[in-house]
Design a protein around this nucleic acid. Structure first.
Lengths: 333, 333
DNA sequence: ATCATAGAGCGAAACGTTTCGCTCTATCCT
DNA sequence: AGGATAGAGCGAAACGTTTCGCTCTATGAT
């Protein structure tokens, strides 16, 4: 039913090869160009991507596996990724891994079955099992947000240590001397932020005591429980750094439900400025990541990898973070 | 490089037709079945979906256009849609329309260019322009969450009037007599909720005065400004019904920043129970939609439409809502 | 014993592109 | 004027499946 290149051949009298050449950006005589364009218009022709894919072995599709499609963080990244891909004629097929390494691996298998040209992963864990099948099928992979140690993969992320240092510096500037950190110890990202924070504090002569280092999972629960624990101590910290969105959420919940208030009784500096900062009271002070840049860079990078088919040494883009100042940190200085 | 059906033919000595039949669930002799399965394993064979698609004219792909991929609401729906599709061997390609009718139309065009078998739309507006190209190409469309009047389209949604009635009934039960509504007057959904709320209140002998009917866009801003306006009135309402997630967010922000507090000075009943209800103080009372059921139903429906290739009269699934009770509504009774 | 029938297998055509290697024409240089 | 060259066009093969319509065998009924 839909028009094919053959219909265009019939209307223009040109050969399939010439028309195909035109469609793929090759040079044809101006008069022929006019003819072809008219025919395309008349017939409402659209390239059959499956036929094209069969020959070229390219689907013009990128698979994106996100650690949690229900998270705002991923949603925002997906927006920017999608924009770049679409503008380049690529579609994105999305799978949710729900923070589960096994599911993540299945997603990659699924992508391969669907003949994607490239894969972007917002990893759910440090597991690199999923890389195997991608490597085997020679499909380029770009990691976004969280890198995986020793993966040898292309990656777009922030400098997590530096970001945590920013947070530490801000607390120091505001005169806080009893500081705590609630972090995720199950991820590279979280551990880096932890290291950056501790190092900067130590360098400033204010090492963080063990009991103020709250390790745990990447979850609202961990944030919630840890904050409760901190608040119940005899010597409460004056400030807490929560190293990701979920932890920040949980910590804020805990404070809101307690008899204490922020920032008068406890200061909080969070991570990832999403909608949260507009709705909770007081307005949060947060370390923010350049979401737009991250998403766009990841998309551009995977497109480049697809086109260049290269074996170049993996690239790593490390983007800068900044602090958005709200009212959740009290000035003690 | 990857194995083809021809390699299986070589290893088993069977014909292409027989192997294809097996792959598509047809009957073959038990001994041949064993042979084929062994070959598939040995060769690590995977069907080339593009070749298959070229013949069958099916891509086993569904396009999903969401009104805002950055919204939690869409993220959650996408999770459930994705699960069902993937379990059925279908991939979903996602486009964001950012609440823009033009972009929505472009998304559909894009889907068609990509040869999707079916389309799910979480519409961004009442515009039905985008339906044209889908109809022309004979691709089934399922509307999710928001129906479009006169579209004649399959649809999965809640009964918005009934949902609003629930909210009204709860306020009435709690003895509220001065009630306001902040709603989106630019959407069918919002208008239905408005009607349901007003009707139930009228029936109870408590019609909502004009000045307590806050019409506007579907946005945090509208919720924020309207709540501020309501709070500044001499005769404040005792309760406010906010008819969607963004409006609820905005309204809560306004109250938090004001000298008033919820629920002591003003009660709020919101819509769409997302993470918000856990983090804001007090815990919100909300009308909740059955997200899982909605997503899954929409996916099942589009799969059915694709398979049955039918011209049946459009189906409409209307799901039930419920109320999740928190502490944001004061009992005056 | 003969015939009809059901089930399984097969060969070949078809799906709609791209691409390889060739021919042809027109241009430009010497 | 003759030869080299660049540019455009073309025919045909190839990509990896599915499917149509046929043949063949084995079974069961008469």
């Amino acid at each position: 039913m839909p028009a094919t290149i053959r219909d265009i051949k019939d209307q223009t009298g040109l050969s399939l090869a010439t028309i195909s050449k035109y469609l793929n950006g090759g040079n044809v005589l101006p008069e022929n160009k006019v003819k072809i364009e008219r025919a395309i218009n008349d017939l409402d022709y659209q390239v059959n991507e499956m036929a094209r894919g069969l020959v070229t072995n390219m689907s013009r599709t990128v698979g994106v596996s996100v650690h949690d499609i229900g998270s705002l963080f991923c949603g925002i990244l997906l927006r920017y990724i999608g924009d770049v891909l679409k503008n380049n004629g690529y579609s994105m097929i999305i799978c949710d891994s729900r923070d589960d390494a096994k599911r993540e691996e299945e997603n990659i298998e699924f992508f391969i079955k669907k003949n994607v040209d490239g894969i972007i992963v917002i990893p759910s864990s440090q597991s690199k099992d999923f890389l195997k099948s991608a490597k085997k099928n020679n499909i380029p992979v770009v990691l976004l947000d969280r890198s995986i140690t020793g993966s040898g993969c292309d990656c777009v992320r922030i400098d997590n240590r530096a970001a945590a240092s920013l947070a530490a510096a801000l607390l120091i500037d505001n005169g806080h001397k009893a500081n705590a950190i609630i972090y995720s110890s199950v991820e590279y990202t979280g551990i880096e932020r932890y290291k950056g924070f501790l190092e900067t504090m130590s360098d400033a002569g204010m090492p963080i005591p063990e009991e103020f280092q709250m390790a745990g999972t990447h979850s609202i629960e961990h944030g919630y429980r840890s904050m409760n624990e901190l608040l119940s101590k005899k010597n409460r910290p004056t400030a807490v750094f929560t190293t990701n969105y979920e932890l920040t959420l949980g910590a804020v919940m805990a404070v809101n439900e307690s008899k204490y208030s922020c920032p008068d009784d406890i200061s909080i500096i969070g991570f990832d400025n999403l909608i949260l900062s507009h709705v909770v009271q007081p307005k949060m002070t947060m370390v923010v990541q350049p979401m737009k840049e991250m998403g766009e860079k990841a998309a551009q990078l995977i497109l480049f990898k697809i086109k260049s088919k290269d074996k170049d040494s993996p690239m790593e883009y490390v983007l800068n973070t900044s602090i958005e100042v709200g009212n959740s940190v009290l000035n003690l200085a």
